Amino acid sequence: MIAFHVLGQLEVRAGARDLAPTAPRVKAVLALLALNANRVVSTDTLFAELWDDRPPRSAATTLQTYVYQLRRILDSVPRGERRCEIVTKAPGYELRTGRTDAERFLTLAEQGRCLWRQGHVTEAAERLRQALGLWRGEALADINLGPELTMHKAHLCELRLRVLELRIQADARLGRHQELIPELRSLVAEHRLNERLHAQLIDSLRAAGYRAEALQAYQDLRKVLRTELGLEPTPEVQRLQAEVLNGAHGGSVTALLRTG
């Protein structure tokens, strides 16, 4: 059965084989169809992705050629094994398939959020970890992005970050603070203005007994915010710092990190 992967480099997996096209615009068409699996993508949307607001006169014919090339790739797998097809359906094309890693990610993420809301923290952490494990790097990593795919990528990356934040919160609830500290240090370096991640680092350092490092992590955040945005940390983060100073085990971080 063919599986379409977009959470990393584009892959079209048929067993051990990767059937992904190499031509940049053909890859872009396939990526847009895969991200909208089982939904029609209009020709206007595909034109916008491939040529922005300047489609050539031959755009319709060229797009038909790209779709033909994709159909030939799928046809190289026996129909009973591939269970997918690209159909022409007004006002455009539809990739009919049940196997995309993006859809699987969204399903696992929603299951994790539901488990979290129900108080099943261990199960939620595991389900969210499974969702994040589907990512093989940067989404659509090997595709020249037009405006449509750029929006899709931004949306996926934002969802991934929110799932990651919730998984970290679940692990923290389970008392895994010591294990979280290296990961959180890396994340705050990557997402310098994300106060939620900074707050979780401060809280995990405090919970692990590193009071001085927790206070330094707060000062690092304060310096970044003042330098880059001219802002102070939110009141919740300021209360968290006060709790660290006083040796308290309050709940400021819980309010700030409430997710899902």
Rank of each mutant, 00 (worst) to 15 (best):
A212L: 04
L174H: 02
L128T: 07
P78L: 12
T61C: 12
L215S: 06
R72K: 15
E179I: 00
R13S: 06
L30V: 08
G15E: 11
L180G: 06
F4A: 06
L156F: 05
R258L: 12
L115E: 04
L225V: 09
E103N: 07
R104N: 04
L245N: 13
L205C: 11
P21F: 00
Q9C: 11
P233L: 03
L245Y: 07
A189P: 00
A23Y: 08
W51D: 08
G251P: 00
D75E: 14
R162Y: 00
L7G: 00
E123F: 01
R258Y: 03
L19V: 00
S186L: 10
A31Q: 07
V253S: 12
Q178D: 13
A242W: 09
P91W: 10
L115C: 01
E179G: 15
D18I: 10
T100D: 03
P147E: 06
E110C: 00
L240K: 09
E123R: 11
R82M: 03
G175S: 01
E228F: 08
A90T: 03
R99M: 00
R82W: 13
L221N: 05
T150E: 08
L32E: 12
T45K: 14
L180R: 01
A48C: 10
C114A: 11
V6P: 09
R54V: 10
L35D: 08
R129Y: 11
R222E: 13
Q178N: 14
P56K: 13
A141R: 11
Q118T: 08
A131S: 10
E123D: 10
M151R: 15
H249S: 06
V224I: 12
S58P: 00
D44M: 15
E228V: 10
D18R: 06
R173V: 08
G137C: 01
L257N: 07
S204H: 06
L108P: 01
N36S: 12
A131T: 02
Q219D: 15
P235S: 08
L106H: 10
N144H: 05
T61K: 14
L149C: 12
L74D: 01
L7V: 00
Q200M: 10
T22V: 09
P55Q: 05
E85F: 11
N246C: 02
L145K: 05
L257Q: 07
P21N: 07
L221D: 07
V253G: 05
D52S: 15
I86N: 11
D171N: 09
L70P: 13
Q200K: 02
L30A: 01
R127A: 09
